[in-house]
Design a protein around this nucleic acid. Sequence first.
RNA 1: CGGGACGUGGCGAAGUUUGGUAUCGCGCUUGGUUUGGGACCAAGAUGCCGCAGGUUCGAAUCCUGUCGUCCCGACCA
Length: 481
Amino acid sequence: MAEQGKKKLVEAITPMEIDFARWYTDVVINAELVEYTSVKGCLVIRPYGYAIWEHMQRIMDGMFKATGHENVCMPMFIPESLLQKEKDHVAGFAPEVAWVTHGGAEKLEERLCVRPTSETLFCEHYAHIVQSWRDLPKLYNQWVSVVRWEKTTRPFLRTREFLWQEGHTIHATAKEAIAETERMLGVYQTFFEETLAIPVVTGAKTESDKFAGAVTTLALEALMHDGKALQVGTSHYFGDGFAKAFGIQYTGKDNQLVHAFQTSWGTTTRMIGAVIMAHGDDSGLVLPPAVAPAQVVVIPIAAQKAGVMDTANTLTARLQSFCRAKIDASDNSPGWKFAQHEMQGVPIRLEIGPRDIEQQQCVLVRRDTRGKTIVPLAELEAVIPQMLQDVHDSLYAKALANQQNHTYRCTSLDEIRQTLRDNGDGFVYAMWCGDEACEDSVKEATGVGSRCIPYAQEQIAPTCVCCGKPAKHMVCWAKAY
RNA sequence: CGGGACGUGGCGAAGUUUGGUAUCGCGCUUGGUUUGGGACCAAGAUGCCGCAGGUUCGAAUCCUGUCGUCCCGACCA
């Protein structure tokens, strides 16, 4: 009874098993990542959520710089006539753009679209600055927000305004541009594995699922706890289609005037959603150490007892010389703090109280396993970095095991239905003839859609899972966000 | 954009059927006692009942519209 009274005080998180969607929203709110505003799909990213984004940004931006990219910043507005220049592109995006029609009280002669993506702006710019083969390549990236007037919205996963990075590169040859598309997919994959501890399936999108205006779209798909796929990054090869539409030509070494070849690639704040749904549990967020705003939280026990706060403060300063550490000196009870920092996914909790000080030790508790270790204070410099690495490694291993346990290989539509019913949602690997009608039929019949044609191809069967004609590819199918 | 649910101090709810003084719990503030898994006592503060119209002597409650949130579908990073 007393326990029941206590539980009522706890900010309830709906258990995943009961309702995964509610679990997700409970976590984003209770971990203080976002706050709703009065505009649908436009959320406040709160300091804790934004700090996670800043770490993602910092690390990824370093990877872009290391591969020779420069940051730029394009305007937010695109004149309608500019957006119209590439017909597939405009057809893809027109349904979800927001328009500016007035400046103050004056109606604009030409309405301006709020960028849903910036290909057209980059193209206009490239048309001006690219004249010679000596001007190529240009390897640009920008960190901005874009607006897409989505009908249904969910924090981080689908918002009307979202933060992202969009890389836009232009090259002399198709070969170079294709290599860039693949290289950046690889950069993303490394980032997901080594920074976010999330395994991904990489491959090409099918024709029907390509980016509007692209020749090919490469994508990274991650599997969430509920067995649904989340597209967490894309890398597009445009050929010279945009260059032709926008008149981007250069004079080659042979004095011939030719069109240039382009790419674009992007990742968004959706990655925060991926972290939540790939690592989180019923106590809240579980953050990979690389992007955790605090990697260690110090919790003084019996803080007003002589020496405790002094020791805790000194210890925190010491930790800060080799990791991101903070102290929770609020007057909440220790139990409250434990729950709060678990909710926020802090990788390691360090408890220090009178008993520990007497013994010159402290208690370390890992967020992911809740494993407790008593460690001599003198050994923290060695123990904590190792523990952070262990947390990362076991998060990755656990996510990978989850992905593998929920990856099914099927040879018929019935088998797909049966497997999903018996084992829950996940990735379904099955063969495909390449016909769009079959792609649609699979979705219709089983509920899973094509996510990508994985690079890691397997010969599961000689024939299409749907029509029985000779198969061209193995496709990764899944229910998706 | 279709189907369903819901908007009441910061949060979660009761009150709406049957119109009549705005309720409860948590949180917050101040003081004190506490502190190894969401502490306790005392005293306080906080409401245009989502918003706009309408009906009525009187609306949180009835009617119309609108905005937002959640869930399920179709579309999308």
